[in-house]
Design a protein around this nucleic acid. Structure first.
Lengths: 140, 140
DNA sequence: CCCAATGTTTGATAGTCGCGGTACATAGAT
DNA sequence: ATCTATGTACCGCGACTATCAAACATTGGG
């Protein structure tokens, strides 16, 4: 009856210790970008749900990088781990950034990790792509 | 007197070929983040101006990654190369993203590559950090 | 011509990353 | 206890990255 509660101990950086290069590096991989995009519905997802055709150890590796960069929170329950985006902490640290990032990723079609067809980020701050500030394309 | 125009040929990706993971990877390095931040004044800077105490070849390496990711444009003139941010192209591809990125980087204090003390991004779209969309901090 | 200034290219090194495979640990069910 | 499901830890491999030093190329000026 599991009285000892050997819940897995995950390291999560304090919001103050979240570093922008680490966050950007975590998102600079298409696989991880897809994972974050799949998590952008605000719900919790297990590693199994997020994992497509990649090996389990690879998924653990990616989730570790995302977690240690401060992008997601992992909650252990039984044999499963529930991953969720740290939207509030990220929003506090970098207001509006995550929303723009995920919006840009969605428009680029990186939502192919586990859940596709998700069109709305459901994140604080309205979706990006509204009102481009007159991009004058004519550099050359 | 230089009638032959042997201007150096740099590769610049088409705006349509700019990929978000490549952009994020380019910005996931503190040195490159500092370079981009130094360039965020909208002016052109030579590699020599941007280079702090790092080797010239290292600077060439970083500038190449930034250029090939679509973040900056390089113009050759004489023996010097003038680097500038591709703000318009980036704004067209990912509206508002670069501004938020640089704003977050500034707040984290990554403006220490060549020009420090620059407080305003001077980029299309107002500076970030103004009007956060009600970050409800209460994850835990 | 030679020399200085500015970048680029090449080589070398040490470290990291992405990936999978295997073994291991934990929780739940039989 | 055994089996299954779910993840993690560890190992190795190939590829990539960051860094520098040295050699090279190009331009401009004596």
């Amino acid at each position: 009856m599991c009285d000892s509660w050997r819940v897995r101990r995950y390291f999560h950086p304090d919001p103050k210790d979240i570093r922008l290069p680490a966050v950007l590096f975590a998102l600079s991989d298409a696989t991880r970008l897809g994972i974050v995009l799949a998590l952008s519905d605000g719900r919790e997802h297990t590693a199994g749900e997020l994992g497509g055709d990649i090996a389990k150890s690879t998924m653990t590796h990616h989730l570790k990088i995302l977690r240690e960069s401060g992008l997601l929170w992992v909650r252990s329950e039984g044999t499963r781990c529930f991953n969720s985006l740290r939207t509030a902490d990220l929003e506090q640290r970098y207001p509006g950034l995550l929303g723009h990032l995920l919006g840009s990723a969605t428009r680029d079609g990186y939502g192919s990790a586990g859940d596709r067809g998700n069109g709305r980020p459901a994140l604080p701050g309205r979706g990006p792509g509204e009102g481009p500030a007159g991009a004058e394309a004519g550099t050359d």
